[in-house]
Structure formats: structure tokens, C-alpha cells
Amino acid sequence: MPLNPEAQRIIDGFPQLDRIETPPNAAAMREEFHRTWRMPADLPPVGAVADTALPGPAGDVPVRVYVPEGTGPFPVLAWFHGGGWTIGSLDENEVACRTVCASARCLVVSVDYRLAPEHPYPAAADDAYAVTAWIAEHAAELPGGGDPSRIAVGGESAGGNLAAVVALRARDQGGPRAALQVLVSPVVGHWADGRASYDEFAEGYFLSKASMEWFFTQYPRDADDLNDPYLLPLRAGDLSNLPPALVLGAECDVLRDEGEEYARRLQAAGTPTELVRYDGVIHGFFGLLATELSVAREAHARVADALTKAFASAPGTGAGSAPAPAAGADGGA
């Protein structure tokens, strides 16, 4: 399908948006992002927002906790931002986190995990897992009060990768089982795996193939890391006995095919999984571009609805029972 007109305006307004300069520099790219990005003026209301820190494997991990109106204990979504494990921040997900918090009436704990290349793999994954495990034991201590029996994990792009990794590690290591994993345009494979979306949308669609190539020079320590399913979940031989999943993706995105392949493999392994493709849409539609792309409202509502249903079905002694039946791909508005 042709590009969504709103997506086309974004691309037309920033013709060099997806170009990676040579040699790129992570610190400079972060500084440029903070210089040019502006927090939206009209933020969705929530009960409270608190910046704090939770224990991690290498010291405290900064988090931003969004609290809905009302009285807890509330279910909890651990959310991981995107940015190729290298350049993301909590701020870019402010609208998405607030909207989901209010709509699903859950705490959203947005995690400021360590970034590469200063902290290569497995630093980000270790932080994500440690924060989720802490929530499962101490949710009641969070601002607003959380319910440790009702937790979920989610993220966009590299954050979707971390959510999927947390789910895998929890299964394998006896960790907390989430009621739902929300994977938005997740990085679950490698740019050189030969998927068609990497060729079809290599340049000119916000996130480029060159950008992904560069991110993969920053996060892994060496080539051996690329065989580790805790870095690339599509490398996992067994995807059974994982939490139910909601996988959202954009049609015009290099990451499209790997996200859809992961969803199909989850379904084949017996994991209840809903897969949604938003036609004509580009990468970043959920968080970073939420105020520019009106499709974000539909995506946020879908996530909030899935969380509400998953939390309602959680047994109360540990999250993660069966949600609604698995669904196939469909076109979003």
C-alpha cells in the first residue's frame, strides 16, 4: 500500500532522517536528539508521574513510573523504550506511556536501561530482566502501589527486543511469568538474515537498513553474541510456554518481517499471539511519532485493551494465564 499521508509528510519534512553519517557517534547522536526533540505540550493526564530508581545488576536503574487515577494496587507494565539499544530515552515514550497507563488503569514503569556502546550486551537485557524481577517481588513498593501477581512487559523496537528477551529468560531461569508481552516493531532478528522488508524499505522510510547495521556494531560484543537468543529471540529453538503476546508492526519498516515471523513462530509453538500490521505506516508509530501519526491512538487503545483483558485473567498468585485466542495478521487503520 502507499504510505500513509501523515507518514509521507514526516519523511518529506526530513529527507535525511534515516541517513547514518560516517563515522557515526553514539554520544553525538544522543545529544542531537535531545537538542531537537521537544516534549509535546498537551500530555495525556494521569494520576501521578514519579522518577525514581530500582535495583539493577550494576547499580540502580532509573525508571519513570506512571500512576493512573484511583487507588491501587494496580497491575504493572514494565516498558522498554527503543533506540537501537544505543540512543533512546524515556522522554520519547511519554505520550504512549501516559495513554496506556490511563486507559488500562495500570502502573507503567518505563525503564532507562544502560546504553551501548558504553554498556554492550548483555547490559540492557540484564537491566530489563532485573527491573522486571524486582517488580514481581516488590510491586507494592512502587509509587501508587502495584500488584505483583499482575505484571506485563512491553517495548518498541529495541525495547520490544528487551521485552521478548525478558519473557524468554523468565521461562528459562524460573523468573516471573508475565500476563502479556507487548512487542511493537521488535528487533528479534539480524539485518543480514535476508528478510524482504530490509530490501523493500532499506532507505527513505524513517528507519533505514544502514541504521540497523550500525546499531548492530554498537550492542553486541562480538559475532558470537548474534547466536544468543537473549540478544536475538528468533535464534531460540523453542518458543513454547511463553506469555501470550501482542505483536504490532508497521508495513513500511525494515523490521516488519522479523516481527511477523516471530509472531507466527509463537503461534506455532502454542503461545496465544495476536499479530497486527498497520498498513502504510513507518517505524516509530507507537512512541516516538505518536503525536505525528494518528494511527498511534488506535495502537495505544489496542494495547490497553489487551492489557486489561490479560490482567483480568491473571490468577492472582502469579501473572500469565491464557488470554483471548490467537489471531492472525490484519491491516490497521
Rank of each mutant, 00 (worst) to 15 (best):
F14Q: 12
P40F: 03
R235T: 11
D18S: 08
P229D: 04
V67E: 14
Y113G: 09
N25L: 10
G159D: 12
S103V: 02
R30L: 01
R35P: 00
A104W: 03
I87H: 13
D224E: 15
V184I: 14
D305G: 12
S89P: 08
T291S: 13
A333K: 08
R302H: 10
A125P: 07
A296Y: 04
A301M: 05
P122F: 06
R105W: 01
T291L: 01
S149N: 11
A102M: 04
W214R: 09
P55E: 03
R264E: 15
V165K: 11
T36N: 15
V187Y: 07
F206M: 09
R235E: 06
S240I: 00
A329K: 01
C97Y: 06
A133C: 14
G237K: 13
S157I: 00
I20D: 11
V165C: 12
E31P: 09
L183Y: 01
Y121Q: 03
S103E: 14
G174W: 00
A333F: 10
D253M: 01
E94L: 11
Y113T: 05
D12T: 07
D60L: 13
A192S: 15
A139Y: 03
I20G: 13
A312F: 02
Y230N: 06
P45C: 06
G204H: 04
A299C: 12
V108A: 04
D127R: 01
A263D: 08
G318P: 13
G259F: 05
R277F: 02
D228T: 09
T291M: 10
A116P: 11
L43F: 06
T271Y: 02
A296P: 10
D112H: 04
T308A: 13
A202V: 04
D12C: 05
D330G: 15
E213F: 09
N25P: 05
R277V: 11
G88M: 04
A290W: 06
G175D: 01
V182C: 14
G328W: 00
F286M: 06
P45R: 05
P143G: 10
V187W: 05
V100E: 05
H81P: 12
G280N: 04
G174D: 03
K209M: 04
Y113D: 02
A192K: 13
A268Y: 03
P272H: 08
G146S: 06
S211W: 10
R30P: 08
P244M: 07
L17G: 15
H283T: 07
E274S: 15
H119W: 08
A140C: 09
D51I: 02
A163D: 03
Y262I: 02
E6F: 03
T132C: 09
T71Y: 04
Q173T: 09
L183I: 00
L226M: 14
R221M: 07
A164T: 04
Y129G: 10
R256K: 01
R256Y: 13
L242C: 07
L289D: 10
E6V: 00
G318M: 09
L266A: 05
D12F: 07
V182R: 01
A319D: 11
